[in-house]
């Protein structure tokens, strides 16, 4: 569908979510550059259309499983960005009181079963959520986000196989950004499209332009409908690119092997700025309206940055809570 076929509200929602993710990650990068953040973070810049399009097709009580590159998924599911930023800075007010950090943000009240530090680690977990849905007989769905490289983990194949065999309401979303750290997926995998693996499990597998939010949304809507109707899982592969390296400290010089301008070519397809231009040009929204929206988001981002920066670190004794119900054993 072209943007003219969507409501103004839907289009501005898409844009607001993508813009918020972009600004969220830019500020996360700033935390790192200013030395405010311990450890590392894996930025979602460039991939905004994927989480936005997929999560727009979900209902409030659906579940998602996320990855090490998870900030975008969480923003799209409506996690509180101030508590996310506080967690990234290791503060007491963060989602996990500073115990998890960027790679382990979880928001159970939003159906977010957690970002995950192990590539492919979350795939069976989201599949298990789909099993719960099937067992309870509700019309919820579970989405398992993963990178391209997770499709070479055993958990991917084991999970997709079981979901297919038992018609579980799970949608496997592959964010194919072409690289697993420095390794080009095309050098270690025999098929240029990863969604073709769906054939091996006799389920639908679709490839979509991951830089186009409406394309992702349409594919997700179809997969979600199929899952809600009890017809089983779908694999959606979104072709996308990460602006930054694997994490904030990775200059990603390895990406010039195939083409000197690979990064620039992808950045020309920016899902955020191109979409902004497109919806204004289509007359769906005015420049002024977009600016107002951006100001609103910016105020939210700045408030979150301040909240995170001003929040205290947890007391050292916090390390000894939450291992078990009883604390430590």
């Amino acid at each position: 569908m072209k943007v003219k076929d969507y409501s103004k509200e839907q289009l501005t929602d898409f844009y607001e979510t993508m813009f918020k993710m972009r600004r969220f990650e830019e500020e996360t990068f700033e935390f790192y550059k200013k030395g405010m953040m311990a450890g590392l973070a894996h930025l979602y810049m460039g991939e905004e259309a994927v989480a936005t399009g997929v999560c727009a097709a979900l209902k409030e009580d659906d579940y998602i499983g996320s990855t090490h590159r998870g900030h975008g998924h969480l923003v799209a599911r409506g996690a509180e960005i101030d508590r996310m930023m506080a967690e990234i800075l290791g503060k007491e007010t963060g989602y996990s009181n500073g115990k998890g950090g960027s790679m382990h943000i979880m928001a159970m009240d939003k159906g977010i079963l957690g970002a995950n530090g192990i590539v492919g680690g979350e795939i069976p977990i989201a599949t298990g959520a789909a099993y719960t849905i099937k067992y309870k007989g509700t019309d919820q769905v579970a989405v398992s986000f993963m990178g391209d490289s997770a499709t070479n983990e055993g958990t991917f194949h084991e999970s997709v196989n079981m979901a297919a065999a038992w018609d579980l309401p799970c949608i496997y979303v592959i964010e194919n950004n072409l690289y697993g750290i420095s390794v080009d997926i095309r050098d270690v995998t025999n098929t240029p499209d990863l969604a073709v693996r769906a054939k091996g499990y006799d389920i639908p597998g679709v490839v979509v332009d991951g830089m186009d939010v409406t394309a992702v949304y349409e594919a997700a809507k179809k997969a979600v409908k199929r899952a809600r109707e009890g017809k089983g899982p779908t694999i959606i592969e979104c072709k996308t690119y990460r602006w930054q390296g694997h994490h904030v400290g990775d200059p990603a010089t390895y990406r010039k092997r195939r083409s000197e301008t690979e990064k620039e070519d992808w950045m020309a397809k920016c899902p955020v700025t191109n979409f902004r231009k497109e919806i204004i040009e289509a007359g769906k929204v005015t420049e002024d309206e977009i600016k107002q929206l951006e100001e609103k988001v910016e105020a939210e981002i700045q408030a979150a940055v301040k909240f995170a920066a001003d929040s205290p670190y947890p007391d050292a004794s916090e390390a000894f809570t939450d291992v078990f119900q009883e604390g430590t054993l």
Partner: peptide
């Protein structure tokens, strides 16, 4: 790995 992980997801969702 798959069905133990599914157990984790089932436990997280009730």
């Amino acid at each position: 790995q798959g069905f133990v992980g599914m157990g984790v997801g089932m436990a997280l969702t009730g």
